[in-house]
Structure formats: structure tokens, C-alpha cells
Measured scan of single mutants.
Amino acid sequence: MVQRGSKVRILRPESYWFQDVGTVASVDQSGIKYPVIVRFEKVNYSGINTNNFAEDELVEVEA
């Protein structure tokens, strides 16, 4: 279970941040499909630095 402030590695192959490390900004408990919002240092092609992920697409590298 990841929690706010954890450092996580992204396992979603189609993601711009695949294999990159980001910080968990928040975790939604309402039961949505992609409840974990992760914030990154670098921006993607659209200038965005956050994205939603499912918990099984993340691996915690640092608490």
C-alpha cells in the first residue's frame, strides 16, 4: 500500500514516465480505477508533471 509522500517507480509501459521515480501526491479511497496521483520532476510533452496510476502499476522504492 503506497501512501502520500512515498517514492514510487512506474511500471506502466505506455506511460511517459515508465521506469521513472515520482512522489505520491495523494491516494483516493473512493474506489476509482486509478486512485494514486504521482508527481514527477520532469514534465511530459504537454507540460504536465502529474498523472494517475493504479496501485499495481507502482512499486515503492522509498517510504
Rank of each mutant, 00 (worst) to 15 (best):
M1S: 14
M1F: 13
V2R: 02
V2N: 03
V2T: 04
V2D: 05
Q3G: 08
Q3P: 04
Q3S: 11
R4C: 13
R4M: 12
R4K: 14
R4L: 12
R4Q: 13
R4G: 06
R4F: 05
G5D: 04
G5V: 03
G5M: 00
S6N: 07
S6A: 13
K7N: 04
K7G: 05
V8E: 02
V8W: 02
V8Y: 02
R9C: 13
R9W: 05
R9T: 07
R9N: 06
I10A: 00
I10L: 05
I10W: 04
L11I: 10
L11K: 04
L11W: 06
R12Q: 06
R12G: 02
R12D: 06
R12I: 05
R12V: 07
P13R: 13
P13D: 04
P13A: 12
P13V: 14
P13Q: 12
P13S: 09
E14P: 01
E14C: 12
E14Q: 10
E14I: 06
S15H: 02
S15N: 02
S15W: 03
S15E: 03
S15G: 02
S15M: 03
Y16L: 03
Y16A: 02
Y16Q: 03
Y16K: 02
Y16F: 15
W17Y: 02
W17Q: 00
W17G: 01
W17H: 02
W17D: 00
F18W: 05
F18L: 01
Q19F: 09
Q19H: 09
Q19A: 07
Q19M: 15
D20P: 01
D20S: 10
D20T: 09
V21P: 01
V21Q: 02
G22V: 04
G22K: 03
G22D: 01
G22T: 03
T23L: 08
V24H: 01
V24L: 01
V24E: 01
V24I: 04
V24K: 01
A25I: 15
A25Q: 15
A25F: 11
A25E: 15
A25W: 12
A25M: 15
S26M: 12
S26R: 11
S26H: 14
V27C: 06
V27F: 11
V27H: 04
D28V: 08
D28T: 06
D28A: 09
D28L: 13
D28E: 09
Q29V: 11
Q29G: 10
Q29R: 14
Q29S: 11
S30F: 06
S30R: 09
S30E: 06
S30C: 08
S30T: 13
G31C: 14
G31R: 07
G31M: 09
G31N: 15
G31Y: 09
I32M: 10
I32D: 09
I32Q: 10
K33P: 14
K33E: 11
K33G: 06
Y34W: 10
Y34D: 02
Y34V: 03
Y34P: 02
Y34M: 07
P35G: 09
P35H: 08
P35C: 13
P35M: 10
P35T: 09
V36Y: 14
V36N: 02
V36Q: 00
V36H: 00
V36I: 14
V36T: 00
I37G: 04
I37N: 12
I37H: 11
I37F: 12
I37M: 15
I37S: 13
I37Q: 14
I37R: 14
V38Q: 00
V38W: 01
R39S: 09
R39V: 14
R39G: 02
R39W: 13
F40T: 00
F40I: 02
F40C: 04
F40G: 00
F40R: 00
E41R: 08
E41P: 07
K42L: 06
K42G: 05
K42I: 07
K42S: 12
K42Q: 09
V43Q: 11
V43S: 14
V43K: 13
V43W: 10
V43C: 14
V43H: 12
V43D: 07
V43R: 13
N44L: 04
N44D: 14
N44Y: 05
N44P: 05
N44A: 05
Y45C: 15
Y45T: 14
Y45Q: 15
S46M: 15
S46Q: 15
S46H: 14
S46D: 15
G47F: 06
G47S: 04
G47M: 03
G47R: 01
I48G: 07
I48W: 09
I48P: 03
N49W: 07
N49L: 05
N49T: 06
N49S: 09
N49C: 14
T50N: 04
N51P: 01
N52K: 07
N52Q: 09
N52T: 07
N52H: 11
F53T: 05
F53Y: 07
A54N: 09
A54H: 07
E55D: 07
D56T: 09
E57V: 03
E57P: 03
E57Y: 05
L58S: 00
L58V: 11
L58F: 06
L58E: 01
L58D: 04
V59H: 08
V59P: 00
V59E: 15
V59G: 07
V59C: 13
E60S: 10
E60Y: 10
V61T: 06
V61A: 06
V61R: 02
V61W: 06
E62T: 12
E62R: 10
E62K: 11
E62D: 12
E62Q: 12
E62H: 12
E62I: 10
A63Q: 12
A63C: 13
A63G: 12
